[in-house]
Simulated assay, not measured.
Amino acid sequence: MKKFLAVLFFLVLMVTYVISVPVYGIEAESLQSRSAILINADDGRVLFEKSSNDKMPPASITKIMLLLLISEKMESGEVTLEQELTVSEYAAGMGGSQIYLEAYETQNVESMLKAISMRSANDASVAMAEFLYGSVEGCVKAMNDKAKELGMSNTNFVNVTGLPEPEHLTTANDIAIMTKELLKYNYVNEYLLTWMDSVYVGKEKDSEQVLVNTNRLINNYDGLLGGKTGFTNEAKYCLSATARRNDTTLIAVVLGCDTTKIRFNEVQKLLNEGFANYKNLVFHKKGDSIITSSVFCGKTDTFNVVSKENVYYFTESNCKVEDFNLEYVIDKNLKAPLDKDVSIGKAILYKEGQVLGEYNLYPEKNVEKEGLIKFYLKNTLENIIK
């Protein structure tokens, strides 16, 4: 019995050791950031983490949520780049990083997006919050509601700027979640990736504010999609960045770095290790014709079948497409009309007999119904010809 318990204890230790080994070559202790995470942007899989659920002040990384809310309203058509807003006294009086807006001057949404994305301007952020929701409080409520919706369970926003507040806290994990959500839209990508630009401020628009992006990775990281920096004395230097190489998209977040050099170096280190060790194997791209299927009573006898998402699997970099199998299961006896937004089957991905994923399949286009008499006449004629 003692021997059995000793062996069991040894096995438990070995399992614990294996589980605690990093996913790849980075040791948590080697990072100088207080908190960090690296995830696959497509499915949210965590590739590396260091204290990623520790609540910390996020500084201006807060503005990722503001940009997300703006993007959602642009997607719905509620907001356009050309719309104008009037700057309040409160917005004009914000401290920290700013573009020195004057009270009661007018600006358009595009200028505000440039200022928020590139200079991380607090006055522009407050002006947009008031424009979108009527007040900063209304915007903060929307930010917290969205955080709950996304499952950001360790986040509490108190303001829209990231200026220090004792209860204004989030985590590297939650930041990665909202960064992933922002990737669904492309309304701010141009500004997040622009190195230099300018906006004119003041009631007479006579003061040029030159904007230089705070994210220096724009100039020296291959495949960068965007990022948001942050700094306060309480939060120290922070960064959330996204990059894509080939079909693989990764998100890296670091919080609590002592210098700006450390935050950029550690994000690059995380992204580099991720791209070196993992990849998305894409079997079919979103919208590509996969197979054809027959349909009864349609104006056409067959139609193209597509997926509304990439049919992919995220795996180690040494895996090949040939290691996997795909099975297409199409509903039987399909009858027109068919709606392109209603699933008509699934693509099922296997490896060594194990199901790894299922992807809904759809008609490429709506399939219209043929009149019954015309359908039978057409089929009769085809049979005669045959």
Rank of each mutant, 00 (worst) to 15 (best):
K320Q: 15
T242Y: 14
N272R: 15
A243Y: 08
F324M: 03
D339K: 03
S307P: 14
D341K: 05
V282Y: 12
K308I: 10
K299L: 04
K279T: 04
Q268P: 03
K269F: 11
F324R: 00
E309Q: 07
V254P: 08
G226I: 03
P337M: 03
V295N: 02
C297P: 05
V254W: 07
Y278W: 15
L338M: 05
N318R: 12
F275M: 04
H284Y: 12
N272Y: 14
K269V: 10
D288I: 05
E273R: 14
L271D: 02
D288C: 04
F303T: 12
R244T: 13
G226M: 07
I251L: 12
Y313V: 08
V311P: 12
R263Y: 04
E273D: 15
V321M: 15
A252M: 11
V311N: 08
E309N: 11
L334N: 05
K299Q: 03
K299V: 05
T229S: 12
D258I: 00
I291W: 15
G227K: 01
T302N: 14
D339N: 07
V253P: 04
K332H: 13
N246I: 08
D341L: 03
S307W: 11
A252I: 10
G256F: 01
F303V: 13
R263H: 06
E327V: 10
N318S: 14
L271F: 02
H284I: 08
F275Y: 09
N265L: 08
T248L: 06
R244I: 13
T315H: 03
L250E: 12
L239Q: 06
I251Y: 13
R263V: 04
L281G: 04
L270P: 14
L271A: 03
G230P: 10
C257D: 02
K332R: 14
I262S: 02
V311M: 08
N265I: 08
L271W: 00
I251R: 11
Y312F: 13
A336T: 01
K285E: 13
V267L: 14
L239P: 08
D331R: 06
S317K: 14
V253Q: 01
K340S: 00
T315I: 04
R244F: 09
G256Y: 02
T259L: 04
D258P: 02
I251D: 11
N280E: 01
E266D: 01
L270Y: 13
R245C: 09
F283E: 11
K269R: 14
V254A: 10
P337I: 02
L270I: 12
E316N: 15
G256S: 00
G227S: 02
N280I: 01
T292C: 02
S294E: 12
T315S: 06
T315C: 06
V329H: 15
K286Y: 05
N333V: 01
S307Q: 11
V254G: 09
T249H: 09
G274Y: 05
K279A: 03
E309P: 08
K236Q: 07
G227H: 01
D258R: 00
L271V: 01
T248C: 07
K285Q: 10
R245W: 09
V253S: 02
K279D: 01
F264D: 07
A235W: 07
I290R: 05
P337Y: 03
T302S: 14
T315E: 05
L239T: 07
D331I: 06
C319P: 04
E234D: 09
D341H: 03
Y328V: 10
L225K: 07
